[in-house]
Write a protein that binds this DNA or RNA. Structure first.
Lengths: 202, 202
DNA sequence: CACGATCTGTACCGAGCGGTAGACTGGGGC
DNA sequence: GCCCCAGTCTACCGCTCGGTACAGATCGTG
């Protein structure tokens, strides 16, 4: 791993996780292809050769930044799934997502969406990486719902995969809205409607 | 307008609307920034100077292609709103969208989403154009719902803006899913859940 | 059938892209 | 105190980008 700190030689003048967060912000705001190396190095406060020595390539940098985004941002929404009931888990997931999508200490929206749904053919891998990240989150939702089904916490015959997909799709749509300027209240009102509809309570 | 056909001079060797549809497909698949002029001209079957003489610039070409996308694709979903009841209108909107997002005669997903939610700073206008298109569709949904509210076709006190936002957000999320490979049935199952939740029927 | 207007095709422009070579810097080990 | 080596910095690479100049082709008109 590049995170092991060699004891010999000139020490690194920057913190790897710090500059990854800064890189994530640039990708988040401008997308993978819209984030030029000049913009990245400028925001990260390091020079091109340092970036390449540390991360290897623009794509690898993106992967690392995206992984860190998952640890720091997506993790909060996933943690919200740990509620005693399925209804509470979904509500917490949707509400904490809406909150995170409109927080002001980082760009609006979601890196998994803004990063680049569509790319030039040579960057198609990036779109795949993003899709895989979203799919992982959807799987986490689905697993929480499956557990609820086993516990009798969902109506019989509820399609947990479809419900997980519905929840994720709504969150992704909220991300699109947030990037276009929707407020947290706007999104919460949409969540209200979604929850009213779920009728998970018996 | 560039659509007026001058009677003198060498005649144009291509049909404007036809090549616009072809350009829209490239933007749809690769996004605005991911669609190179080489890819565009190659798909459209015309040369660069013809493109610039006809459309002016890449951005203007995109605007024209996006406008045509609205006329040919988005118009179908908007037409679906013309159902006798609010519930039927929303169901038709969601189902026809899910169908269009997964049709096989064009790229999966939606140009309004794939085109470029995030762009480099110099292409920020493109993101704005896309957002404006989505907002226009959301307004159309909201107007249909307002009409329903006046007609007593919605529960009292229903927040029509929030409901329109919920419907659009779900559709946008479905577009993200469709671009990642979701099937029409996948999306329809999500629509089922959304509709169950709406409880628009009294 | 020559003229002028319009479109097409080749070949090119400067700029910015992602990525790198090589000289310089500065801290630990002996 | 010297060496070594990782990290930094300037300056550059080839390539592709969006956009265009200019010559040749093709039409209606006199």
């Amino acid at each position: 791993m590049s995170s092991e700190t060699p004891s010999i030689g000139r020490p690194r003048a920057f913190d790897e996780e710090t500059v990854l967060d800064l890189a994530a912000e640039v990708f988040w705001r401008h997308g993978y292809e819209g984030a030029s190396l000049s913009a990245l190095t400028s925001a990260m406060g390091i020079n091109r050769p340092s970036l390449y020595a540390t991360f290897g390539s623009k794509e690898q940098l993106f992967q690392r930044a995206f992984a860190r985004y998952h640890e720091t941002q997506v993790a909060r929404a996933r943690a919200a799934l740990e509620q005693p009931t399925a209804y509470a888990a979904i509500e917490a997931f949707l509400r904490s997502s809406a909150h995170g999508l409109t927080a002001t200490d980082h760009p609006a929206g979601c890196l998994s969406i803004q990063g680049g749904l569509a790319c030039s053919p040579e960057n198609a891998r990036v779109s795949k990486i993003l899709a895989a990240g979203r799919a992982a989150t959807e799987t986490a939702v689905e697993e929480r719902l499956s557990r609820a089904a086993k516990e009798g916490d969902l109506p019989d015959g509820m399609d947990t995969r479809a419900l997980a997909r519905f929840v994720m799709a709504l969150t992704e749509g909220h991300a699109v809205h947030a990037a276009a300027g929707a407020s947290c209240d706007d999104l919460q009102a949409s969540v209200d409607i979604a929850l009213r509809a779920l009728a998970l309570r018996t």
